[in-house]
Design a protein around this nucleic acid. Structure first.
Lengths: 236, 236
DNA sequence: CCGTCGCTTCGGCCGTGGCCGAAGCATTCC
DNA sequence: GGAATGCTTCGGCCACGGCCGAAGCGACGG
């Protein structure tokens, strides 16, 4: 059992618009500087500094010094998962007044392919997930998922060894190997968990995908176009 | 994508000690009155009333009138899951000063068997889960889980039809069929999700288990002792 | 019908905490 | 060395929101 005060403490940290904005910005797994985070939250650096100190104290984020910069990132996948579930409840809340304010057209690239913490989301994420489901590589039972033997083999062919996935030095006990994650633009599940992260990392490493500037959005390289078509029959 | 303000809004609701205490008290799935909740939160009824109105406005809880009482319960399993993930992060936080303050001996019954939202927890919950894992009825891959064909058959023998589990009239799309839930006293997973809830309900219905007074704690009836031994080889 | 009970609304008090300007350290660059 | 950059600390302002006492309202029960 956890003291309810500890629960409230954590929730309070998330329950402040500026901090929530900063944590959301970190949901793509990148490490950002205090000034960048101040920007996304719309506050001054000194105010952001205070917030970040609180988040770091509570171990929700980790801070890494690099020269005169300090990079902040989410401390664990658990934290990301927590924020994700809060988002889920928030999205189910009574709408403030009207329907969804139709995502702007400039987010076209974001809808197409983007990072969700450390795995693939958007049309591409959903398409890859569909392909894996179709091939029987993974199976979802509502909010849970497993990798089949066929999936283990398929991933090995892609250069991902499942046995190694726990050995990232951190060994987060609670990080699922495989699970679905609701895609906010597609409203359908995409692949998350350790294999979701591994797959995404592998695609970036092989230059199938590239970050678009500083955003969460991803572009598919020509090399990636071919590979995705060949591997999964995906035409992006 | 969800507005970060909405996220903060939800988190703020949880991030208040009194409200967190009330939500935690509702985590066993029961519906409690405003006065009872005021009691657990250590505040006056009029203050609790205000809090509960806020939680209901945000659709985190549902209120049901019954005579001069108003019963409050968590609105959806999603809300319970959110609180659970917050608890998980909270328990991983930097300890305030010393180690766990050794759960009091009066919680012996709680440690033995209790409700966790709507499924079994404590020694009993873990034991049942272990038995199901051992029989290959369910499989966990870290934070995810599935029911095998053998498990489907086993559950049918117990009087639980998996096909019906979605038909509770609410059809919460995101509620997993089967998933592990970290047990706070045992520090090991027990069975949650829709089948966790169904199993628990079935045991209560068959009078294998009974609520101890008004608490989350459960007692195993003599009938239940026999059944559990016979079904799962569990000696409580 | 009146008393009790459960709950809500109102009003006022007060503490917590977010916010920024100014100032103070570091680090890097010229 | 001096200037710019990135970030933090300090101090003071201010508002939001939690808290309770008092009062009101509806339901139940004798």
């Amino acid at each position: 059992m956890v003291s309810t005060n500890r629960i409230a403490e954590v929730a309070t940290l998330v329950g402040e618009p500026a901090r929530a904005a900063m944590l959301s910005a970190l949901m793509d797994g990148r490490a950002l500087t205090a000034t960048e985070l101040a920007g996304v939250a719309g506050i001054t650096p000194q105010t952001a500094s205070g917030h970040l100190a609180q988040l770091a104290d509570a171990r929700l984020i980790l801070v890494e010094r690099q020269g005169r910069h300090r990079y902040h990132r989410l401390a664990t996948p658990d934290v990301a998962r927590m924020i994700e579930t809060v988002m889920q409840v928030a999205s189910a809340m009574a709408p403030p007044s009207r329907a969804l304010p139709a995502v702007g057209p400039r987010d076209a690239a974001m809808r197409r392919a983007r990072l969700c913490y450390d795995h693939l989301a958007g049309e591409l994420g959903v398409a890859v997930t569909d392909a894996l489901l179709e091939r029987g590589a993974v199976e979802f039972e509502d909010g849970a998922g497993i990798v089949t033997d066929a999936g283990t083999a398929l991933l090995r062919d892609l250069g991902i060894a499942l046995d190694d996935l726990g050995d990232d030095g951190r060994r987060r006990s609670s990080r699922p190997l495989c699970r679905p994650c609701l895609d906010w633009s597609e409203r359908r599940p995409h692949l998350a968990g350790r294999i979701g992260a591994a797959l995404c990392a592998r695609f970036l490493e092989q230059d199938f995908l590239r970050r678009i500037g500083n955003s969460r959005a991803l572009s598919v390289t020509p090399k990636g176009q071919g590979a995705l078509r060949e591997l999964f029959g995906i035409q992006m």
